[in-house]
Structures are given as structure tokens and as C-alpha cells.
């Protein structure tokens, strides 16, 4: 479109003209992309949001068999002090029965590779469509596998937070966490 209307002046060297047009067009394109970047980048998490992405939780008050919910990065974090029976039940499940095969051991290991089977720390967000499953409070339905039950579409999780029944494709996610002492855990 552009070239058709440039009158072919006899004294203008066509290759130089084309070169100029291409160079200007290329510079313009680079400039446009460079301008677009800050606008896109602007929507990324801000420095203060990122700074808050770590929480420290004192788990000493959580008795065996109890669970607490903590807010972390805007989502619920489930921390369950499991009973020996729950741990045994979780460890006994054969991998072949799992939709998303993971050993119980691998789900209770902190970032320093230390295994604490009594503490199960998970992001309490159903992997189906993002509802918060029930099962943390004493009166909650826990589903057929004694873990968690998502009321939205009926996904059921076992005592290791693994998906066993219902539409959810994956186990409840485990965040990176580190026990800085026996009762103090840092998440994120």
C-alpha cells in the first residue's frame, strides 16, 4: 500500500529508498514492542506482594488429629497434624490405585529433605476448578477416604491429600516449606 503511492521520482535511488523504508519500519516495530513491555510488565506482582509471599507458622498448638487453615499468597494453606492411623492408611495405598501416583513420603518432605510424616502441609485448593475442599474442621465431611471432600463437584482426597474419586485430575499441591525448628515452619 505504501509503496504504490510514492511517485517514482527519477532522481531517487530506489534501493536507498527501500532501505530507508525498511529501516524505519523495523525501528518503529522495535519501538512499539519496547513501549508495550512496561504496560504488560506493570500487571506482574509488585515488590510488596512478592515480599509477602513467605509466611512463618507456629504449629505447636495444633494437636494430633487437628488441622488449621492459614492464608498464604491469598489462598488457604492446610496444615494437618496427622494421627498414626492416618499416616498408616496413607502409606498403605498401592500406587496402582492412584490417579496421580505419589508416595505419601514424598508429600511430607520439606525443602531440606527432612521427612515429617505427622505434618501434612498442602494448598487447600481443589485441583478441579479451585474450590476449597472440606475436611479441616472437626465437623466437616471428609469423603470416603478420610481426607478431604470438595463440595463443588464431589472430588475426594485421602489422608495424604491425594485425589481418589471425582473430577479433579491432580493431588492437592504441596508448597515448598521448611521446618526452621520442630514447631516453626516457613512456607514459600
Amino acid at each position: 500500500m505504501a509503496s504504490s503511492s510514492i511517485p517514482a521520482g527519477g532522481h531517487v535511488d530506489p534501493t536507498r529508498r527501500d532501505f530507508l523504508m525498511v529501516a524505519t519500519g523495523a525501528m518503529g516495530a522495535i519501538g512499539t514492542i519496547a513501549v508495550a513491555w512496561p504496560f504488560i510488565n506493570n500487571l506482574n506482582p509488585a515488590a510488596d506482594t512478592l515480599a509477602l509471599s513467605t509466611v512463618e507458622v507456629n504449629v505447636a498448638p495444633v494437636q494430633v488429629g487437628q488441622a488449621i487453615t492459614v492464608k498464604w499468597r491469598g489462598k488457604p494453606l492446610f496444615i494437618r497434624h496427622r494421627t498414626p492411623e492416618e499416616i498408616k492408611a496413607a502409606e498403605a495405598v498401592p500406587m496402582s490405585e492412584l490417579r496421580d501416583p505419589q508416595t505419601d513420603n514424598s508429600r511430607v518432605t520439606d525443602t531440606a529433605k527432612k521427612v515429617r510424616p505427622e505434618w501434612l502441609i498442602m494448598i487447600g485448593v481443589c485441583t478441579h476448578l479451585g474450590c476449597v475442599p472440606l475436611g479441616n474442621n472437626p465437623g466437616d465431611p471428609k469423603g470416603e477416604f478420610g481426607g478431604w471432600f470438595c463440595p463443588c463437584h464431589g472430588s475426594m482426597y485421602d489422608t495424604s491429600g491425594r485425589i481418589r474419586k471425582g473430577p479433579a485430575p491432580l493431588n492437592l499441591a504441596i508448597p515448598g516449606y521448611l521446618f526452621t525448628s520442630d514447631t516453626l515452619v516457613r512456607v514459600g
Binding site: N41, N42, A47
Partner: peptide
């Protein structure tokens, strides 16, 4: 001021 300090490219915009 948060835009000026913490938001990515916020000061520029």
C-alpha cells in the same frame, strides 16, 4: 507511591 516504588514499571507509567 506504591505505584512509584513497588509496582513493576509503575514509576515509568
Amino acid at each position: 507511591e506504591r505505584i512509584m516504588r513497588d509496582v513493576p514499571s509503575g514509576w515509568l507509567i
